[in-house]
């Protein structure tokens, strides 16, 4: 309950542009099979390289597959991938982070050194190494990205957990004799989960980029499953003749990531005070103006 409330409160305070873009991405991903006008994998060589028309709004690719349908289907591929990666990464991260934040002392010290090393190595190299060892497959990609992403999740979880543990009511609970398990599962874990969810959402953009990058390199999502990075690399040889097939998936991916990045920026900038906007000043002045009439009467 606590975590749902914290999450809802955080969403309410977010910029509308981010909520709109992310919402669109999630809805497209969820309902992709029902809203794609054509089968995204149906080839129609007569249509190959066609421009936009009433029937095919965004044209067709070099195999005559409907571009719009493929872009929408790719949203689903991306959404599912991102969710799986974040789920795995944060499962590891939250457990490690809360344990470090709860136990403190040398447990904390050791775990955080491991996290330090994990964070110092760029995420792409970790995922490439994992794929290089275990081979190219969908689940290896998910595993590779989860292994690259858990350290940052652990870092955030630990910070939140330490913060929660330092709150006065936790001290009170301990004094009242609540068992460590109860403190951990009833109080610490849910509170951390709520706060981490926001960061997880903000991180989703980077994960989406990573999935697209791996697919672009031929190491992630394999054809014919539509995915933005893979669609782009697929169309790259025809860049000169048909740049639309390169630009459209790139733009769609960028747009989705922009949404998540606006969110990330909002989370990061919330604590810094900024000058009041003209509209806010006007609103506050209406209040002060009402004082003058009140005092006169």
């Amino acid at each position: 309950m606590q975590s749902i409330k914290a999450f809802a409160k955080a969403v309410a305070a977010l910029p509308r542009a981010a909520v709109f873009t992310i919402g669109a991405f999630i809805l497209l991903g969820l309902f992709a099979p029902y809203i794609t006008p054509y089968d995204p994998n149906a080839q129609n060589l007569l249509m190959a390289g066609e421009g936009p028309s009433l029937a095919h709004w965004l044209g067709a690719d070099h195999l005559g597959r409907d571009t719009l349908s493929r872009l929408i289907a790719a949203a689903r591929t991306s959404l599912v991938g991102v969710c799986l990666v974040l789920l795995c990464a944060h499962s590891i991260g939250i457990v490690i982070g809360t344990i470090a934040g709860y136990r403190r002392g040398w447990t904390d010290e050791v775990l955080m050194r491991v996290v330090d090393v994990g964070q110092a190595i760029p995420s792409l190299i970790v995922s490439l190494a994992v794929i290089g060892i275990f081979g190219v497959s969908y689940w290896n990609m998910i595993l590779a990205l989860a292994l690259a992403w858990w350290p940052s999740s652990a870092r955030i979880s630990r910070a939140v957990a330490v913060n929660v543990m330092n709150k006065p009511h936790m001290e009170a609970l301990r004094v009242l004799g609540a068992s460590p398990l109860r403190i951990y599962f009833v109080h610490l874990f849910p509170a951390t989960l709520g706060a981490v969810l926001v960061y997880a959402t903000a991180d989703a953009g980077a994960v989406a980029l990573a999935i697209a990058t791996l697919s672009f390199l031929g190491l992630g999502i394999q054809p014919p499953t539509p995915e933005w990075g893979q669609m782009l690399v697929d169309a790259l040889p025809y860049l000169e003749a048909d740049p639309r097939q390169v630009i459209l998936p790139g733009l769609t991916l960028t747009l989705a990531v922009v949404g998540f990045n606006i969110l990330g920026e909002a989370v990061a900038l919330n604590r810094v005070p900024k000058p009041l906007g003209a509209r806010l000043v006007a609103a506050r002045r209406r209040i002060t103006a009402s004082w003058a009439t009140e005092t006169r009467s």
Binding site: G205, A212, T213, G229, V233, L239, V257
Partner: peptide, 10 residues
């Protein structure tokens, strides 16, 4: 927000 492979292609 733009992946480098897209920047490169553009």
């Amino acid at each position: 927000s733009t992946p480098s492979f897209f920047v490169g292609a553009l």
